[in-house]
Design a protein around this nucleic acid. Structure first.
Lengths: 244, 244
DNA sequence: ACAAAAGTGTTTCTACTACACCCATGT
DNA sequence: ACATGGGTGTAGTAGAAACACTTTTGT
């Protein structure tokens, strides 16, 4: 360790936090377009007490970054994400008392995620109708939505919001919810069929009108191209502890 | 401040560093395709002493993130970048002794950047022919190159490597250097002309064969779409202190 | 029978590609 | 004059968009 008696720039006292923007899907009344929702946590202590904020926490010294994101995600929702990616680092000097550098991830949860029964001060919000948020979290959510809308155009990321089996109409509705505009069902069908990322099954969704074929993921295709970055550490399977 | 006597996860002792991958352009013998180059710093102290590393330094508690990136960039090259963007945060537990979270930026410098005369232990390297690097900097450079190659396809980012006036052939050579493949001059011309991001001037580059028209940037068009992110803080004009 | 969603066919439009060709200058 | 890079023209191709149409179910 190099010690110096000169007055040097102060590099200690910077705290590192990890937060996650968690997107999921909520289907409303039958026939309505589904909406993108995210869970927020009501703050119970000082800066911005009472305001809604992104789930997060302090980074532990021995904890990988994506594990920290998965951990806070699991603590909030009790679930493991179907997709997790680093979003951005927000570290403006004035964004929080003291100097806090927030490493923000964004994640997808499959449709129908339920908050654990013991979850207090946690609630789902429609991204189109958010309350005032703590810190600069409104900007963060806005940027995460921008990233999601971009990524949906050139990757299979929308599949991360759906269960294992789904119809093409359900997949299209996910795209429509993210892009907030209607898509032509005929052209949409051809595009995803030509992309060779879906496997048709012999099962059908009945109950209304003509049955629709169910599709499933091609597990060999990644949800999104992450470039040369390594894959995230497998999140510890908090939601799978119950299996036999 | 909330104090606790329980044994809690340790969140102190994490250090925050800022590094920058700085790309510029080097033209070789006349007629050869230019190459993408970046400056590296030879480490003079312990972890990986003697190895080449990305320019960087510790984040000061009162310093904005992009200012820290600009600062280390200026300390290394004496110049201000034509483009600066956050790349990624690397924070693996094992990447460095102690826990270091590195916020990495990437930047472009216009062609022909010269290192300051007093620059010791700094040198330019062709990205296609790098020496072994310290820490995980090889992966970082690989990722930055991937981002550059992607971004060149959907933004005007290549202009950040050129001086104010340039020919279409020079611009095309930048694309070819980044993508490492030849482009059709005729089609390339039409693409950039249709993009309405260049303004033709009445000046021409002479000296060989038919003179080529010089173009300049349309200042109103951003180099790259940054989404809803705020623009970087204007880097303090270290290279412009001499004006009047 | 009819409504409504599933699924197919067809035309148009646009953008990129390949490549032939002409233009203007230095040697 | 001729070689060379600057610059234009044009036909072919692939994919997206628009929309008419057929199919299959529930009521």
């Amino acid at each position: 360790m190099v010690m110096s008696t000169r007055t040097e720039p102060e590099t200690d006292g910077i705290r590192v936090a990890v937060s996650t923007v968690i997107f999921s899907l909520r289907r409303g009344a039958r026939g309505d377009r589904p909406t993108i929702v995210l869970p927020l946590v009501r703050r119970t202590r000082d800066p911005h007490e009472g305001r809604w904020a992104l789930p997060g926490g302090w980074l532990d010294r021995t904890e990988e970054l994506d594990v920290a994101a998965s951990r806070t995600l699991a603590e909030t929702t009790g679930l493991a994400p179907s997709y997790l990616e680093q979003l951005y680092v927000f570290g403006d000097v004035g964004r929080s008392p003291g100097r806090v550098v927030s490493i923000v991830y964004w994640a997808l949860l499959r449709e129908g995620a339920k908050l654990p029964a013991d979850a207090e001060n946690v609630a789902w919000f429609d991204v189109a109708d958010l309350p005032p948020l703590a810190f600069d979290h409104e900007h963060i959510v806005e940027y995460a939505l921008w990233r999601l809308r971009n990524k949906v155009g050139y990757s299979r990321i929308a599949h991360g919001l759906l269960p294992d089996l789904f119809t093409l109409a359900e997949l299209r509705e996910v795209y429509e919810a993210i892009l907030t505009r209607d898509l032509d069902p005929a052209n949409f069908r051809r595009q995803v069929e030509n992309s060779a990322t879906l496997i048709p099954t012999e099962r059908f969704r009945t109950g209304s009108h003509r049955p629709a074929r169910l599709y499933r993921y091609d597990q060999d295709v990644e949800l999104a191209d992450r470039g040369p970055l390594p894959h995230p550490t497998a999140p510890f399977a908090l939601s799978r502890e119950a299996r036999s």
